[in-house]
Design a protein around this nucleic acid. Sequence first.
DNA 1: CGTCGCATTGATATCGCTCAAATCCGGTGG
DNA 2: CCACCGGATTTGAGCGATATCAATGCGACG
Lengths: 212, 212
Amino acid sequence: MHAAAPDRPGRVSAAGDFPGGFPASLRASAIRKSHAEGALVFRMGSRTHSVFYVESGRVRLLRFGRAGEEVVLHDARPGDFFAEASLDSTRYHCDAVASEPTVLLQVPADALKALLASDPEFVREWVGLLGRQLRAARARLERLSLKGARERVLHLLLSEGRGPRSELVLAGTLKDLARELGLTHEVLYRTLAALKSEGVIERDERALRLAR
Amino acid sequence: MHAAAPDRPGRVSAAGDFPGGFPASLRASAIRKSHAEGALVFRMGSRTHSVFYVESGRVRLLRFGRAGEEVVLHDARPGDFFAEASLDSTRYHCDAVASEPTVLLQVPADALKALLASDPEFVREWVGLLGRQLRAARARLERLSLKGARERVLHLLLSEGRGPRSELVLAGTLKDLARELGLTHEVLYRTLAALKSEGVIERDERALRLAR
DNA sequence: CGTCGCATTGATATCGCTCAAATCCGGTGG
DNA sequence: CCACCGGATTTGAGCGATATCAATGCGACG
């Protein structure tokens, strides 16, 4: 269920998909690039050329409805890969935008394919990475299919939290968390306040955990 | 965006994840097994031993909340793999239940790992499979993060439908579709009726499409 | 010190959920 | 052949939870 390594505390939207860090075997072909806040890393519909790894900063994968509503498909944080599923696709299927100043390692798709064809150890790492991301996406799916705000919060704690108290360290703001949970921030505030006053959870500066 | 091959019409919850069919290289190590309707293929928490391919029938991956609410994580149809993300995990993280009489090809994890370590062509197929499933899961995530019933239906048509009219052939019942969309069936019926009366969509025996 | 964004709380509106009932349809058995 | 049954499909009515609109406090930052 968990994408993160057991030695790290539970986090939200701040994965570090590759516990081992950036694979050494990819380093030679990777190009380091910096992006300013708001910069477009790639645009939906452009030809796929690379897979990316976040060294620092943050990149959001977005799609837009006709009314301009922005939907976050993925929120890549330091240690995450993104666009890794575009390997066998000819076009990017969403926009990638740096939501803060960001440094990326950009890996040409050709190099990655070559490595997959020649390095069994790397294959193992890469298949593991995709599997973890898939499980994480399905966990989020499960969470969003719950109806109530309270149930989603509790599900998040239970499935992502660490330790006997299901402690969860918040990576971003509560507004970010609200979006991750498919709620408005107002409802999340109220729900957390209610859970706290009922003695179900405890709140900390940057963490949530079950009370008992 | 699309998980299905371009030559097939858009479908819902009836993928066929592996356009090329069951990989020939896996056939030797695969075991064919039949399951009656309602049979448990594996249970959450048991040790991972195999990855599965649906020849015929249907398998649902389920998790249960404390109140017994059933959440469908995945609905595997003929041509789909499932539990493929459990390769590097030691325990299954959900239950797998045959929701109708089902024939599966069961592939021992060891055999799969061996193939990944030795057959570059198979690696390409497998990485492609995982990537498609990841994109499909994220598309569903995007859909569930939309607020209104109407928006979800339209998003489904736009993202899964085929051809100039975004035609979508329904694999199951409208109740199934409602669950896939995270709605009650009543709301889905009403929404479809409204969209139809407004001339936005057309409905067929087993298909939906944009009117225009 | 002024501004901006997050956090918080209040009031109201909206939309989907729940409960209910009627119809349709395929399948089954008498 | 027909009555009957169960499940899907529809439509209605009302409720409740979440969204929306608003206002305030607070801390960071220039």
